[in-house]
């Protein structure tokens, strides 16, 4: 999920603690700050600290002046071979290609386990919002194709787009049956996304602020971990007892708009409800069902109805954008 969803989930978790609400009424914002901060903490640790110290073995740095998909494919295949022969995990970083303040040359990497090969194709130039610049795809560059020295086991998407900001990392690890297992963004959602780390943070919070803070810290942190299980990647929940990331439930992608907004809005309603029920002497009275009706069902229902009315008979533009990034038949032709 996006950062704001995790953050507000942490705040919502704190709002279930009566002492947090009472302290807030008394002018102390600590527990809510802790809840929100710890809700965002796992990703903060990964994206703002850990990844800069995560060592790579192979850096793929395409030349923007000389776009060569074959070079990229060969490097990836080489990394797979290194993993197979050395039996050690090999980490490969695919760097992005910045061509303007707001422009990035996109390329797409696809692993084909059936044919035991990797394919690379340069896509359009996209802006930071990942919206393609029209007529910017360098079609003449073709598809780079490299044979992999051994079978591979995918743990994430078959196709990876490399475009904005920091490029992705793959960890390649020999599996013991002659294959190499591919892990996407191995530095992410590992030790930092475990209940163990949450417990350690909670213990530190206990020492500084007391057990109430520890509960809030652990609740906020755990909310993040549980939300992450809804996606594809999952996380290593019981580090160091467990060594690998659990697979997620594949119910959503982290950037999907509706689940994110749904989570944010639901958390806002829950926070409002908790503030209401734990606060004394509020002159208005309403039930939880009424809050859900007026705060959720009616406005969202009205919005959805109007959206449906406006979109009746219109082709789905969103799908066409995503499909254009898929290899599909054009890759094999």
């Amino acid at each position: 999920m996006k950062g704001i969803s995790h953050f507000i989930s942490g705040v919502a978790a704190a709002s279930f603690c009566p002492w947090a609400v009472q302290a807030a009424i008394d002018g102390n914002p600590l527990y809510f700050i802790l809840g929100g901060a710890c809700g965002l903490m796992p990703d903060t640790v990964d994206f703002k600290f850990y990844r800069f110290f995560y060592r790579h073995d192979v850096y793929v740095d395409p030349d923007p002046e000389n776009l060569d998909p074959q070079f990229i494919a060969d490097e990836i295949a080489r990394a797979v071979g290194m993993a197979q022969t050395s039996k050690k995990p090999i980490r490969i970083k695919l760097n992005t290609l910045r061509v303007g303040t707001d422009y990035w040359q996109q390329y797409v990497v696809k692993f084909d386990p059936k044919n035991q090969e990797v394919l690379v194709r340069f896509g359009p130039v996209v802006n930071t919002g990942q919206v393609p610049v029209p007529d910017s795809t360098p079609k003449e560059k073709g598809i780079g194709r490299a044979k992999l020295p051994c079978p591979i086991i995918q743990t994430y998407d078959a196709t990876t787009r490399v475009d904005i900001f920091d490029g992705p990392t793959f960890a390649m690890q020999a599996s013991g049956q002659g294959a190499v297992e591919l892990h996407f963004l191995p530095w992410h959602r590992n030790w930092s996304h475990s209940f163990t780390v949450g417990a350690v943070l909670a213990a530190i919070g206990w020492l500084i602020w007391g057990w109430q803070a520890a509960v809030v810290i652990f609740a906020g942190f755990s909310a993040h971990l549980l939300e992450d299980q809804l996606g594809l990647m999952g996380s290593n929940l019981f580090f160091p007892i467990t060594k690998k990331r659990f697979s997620g439930l594949h119910m959503m992608r982290s950037g999907d708009a509706i689940p994110n907004f749904g989570a944010v809005w639901t958390c806002c309603l829950l926070i409002f409800w908790n503030l209401y029920r734990f606060s004394p002497a509020i002159p208005y009275h309403f039930t939880f069902l009424r809050l859900v009706l007026y705060g959720g069902v009616i406005p969202m229902g009205a919005y959805g109805l109007v959206l449906w009315l406006l979109n009746r008979g219109q082709p789905d533009e969103k799908e066409s954008i995503e499909l254009s990034d898929e290899f599909g038949d054009s890759m094999t032709n």
């Binding site: 996006k2 950062g3 704001i4 969803s5 802006n127 919002g129 990942q130 919206v131 950037g255 999907d256 708009a257 994110n260 907004f261 944010v264 809005w265």
Partner: peptide
């Protein structure tokens, strides 16, 4: 905040 919450991609 709203931009993050609604995650709109269309420019």
């Amino acid at each position: 905040l709203a931009g993050h919450a609604t995650a709109q991609r269309n420019e």
